[in-house]
Design a protein around this nucleic acid. Structure first.
Lengths: 131, 131
DNA sequence: CCTGAACAATGACAACTGTACGTGACGGAT
DNA sequence: ATCCGTCACGTACAGTTGTCATTGTTCAGG
């Protein structure tokens, strides 16, 4: 895979919206932004353009409008970002981050239950370190 | 508390080392960097200076050397960074991040067990949303 | 006392990031 | 056919970040 420059915060934000939409024009991405988050139309435009030059999305001219579509799996990018955060803030250990999330972050009881299920499932599915 | 400008990646890296050391000179911080991570002495110096002007650390002149010490709780800063990541990558939901960590990140069986204990403990201690 | 090695502090700078302005093209109303 | 509003595009720009070169200062040996 081509070595892509990392995403900045703003770029990540826009990429996330595009992932949700699957494919969209600048306007659609702009409108799909969460209500609280005010951002200029042209700013979104710039981010999308940069995402394209960085190779994260592809743009197709449809009529007279560019339609953007993702080009990389969200999992990949997100995973990368998470890994980096884990490295920088927790010395590469995932568990402390978990602990932080559980203890400090607002995790509801329902979510805790889900979490427990996740763990159960994983323990059954993958008893050994595959890969 | 004073509103502090956010920490950049590099600043965070240096801050982490300083937290571990508790208190240190530039040289000590520089030497305490993980082996793989090559970084210039003066770069560390610059980061520490910026951390000071940003209010995250305090510097005390000891002899003719500045000794830096943390000024804010790691938990605070880390929490902030984590929150931001959760916002930007997971729409503010902590659970998906957990899921990602469990499924993709390298979590060992032992860690899974610890995690389960954490959950148990939390469920018992705090049956209701006590904020 | 003079000199230079060792080390600290500051200044500088290119690249990147976040944000927006000005310019031009299209389509409907006159 | 012309004018006007809407929309998209490229360009621009100031602030931040990552990195280092240069300058200043102290101490040991001659």
């Amino acid at each position: 895979m081509a070595r892509r420059p990392p995403l900045s915060k703003g770029e990540m934000e826009v990429a996330r919206v595009l992932w949700q939409l699957g494919q969209a024009t600048v306007r659609q991405v702009h409108e799909a932004f969460p209500p609280g988050r005010e951002i200029d139309f042209t700013t979104v435009q710039t981010y999308l353009r940069r995402l394209e030059t960085k190779g994260y999305v592809k743009a197709k001219l449809e009529g007279r409008t560019l339609v953007y579509a993702p080009r990389v799996e969200p999992r990949k990018v997100i995973g990368q970002a998470v890994d980096e955060l884990v490295d920088r803030l927790f010395g590469g250990e995932a568990l402390p981050l978990m602990q932080h999330l559980i203890e400090e972050g607002g995790i509801s009881d329902a979510e805790l239950a889900k979490l427990r299920k996740l763990i159960d499932r994983l323990e059954h599915e993958e008893p050994r370190d595959a890969h």
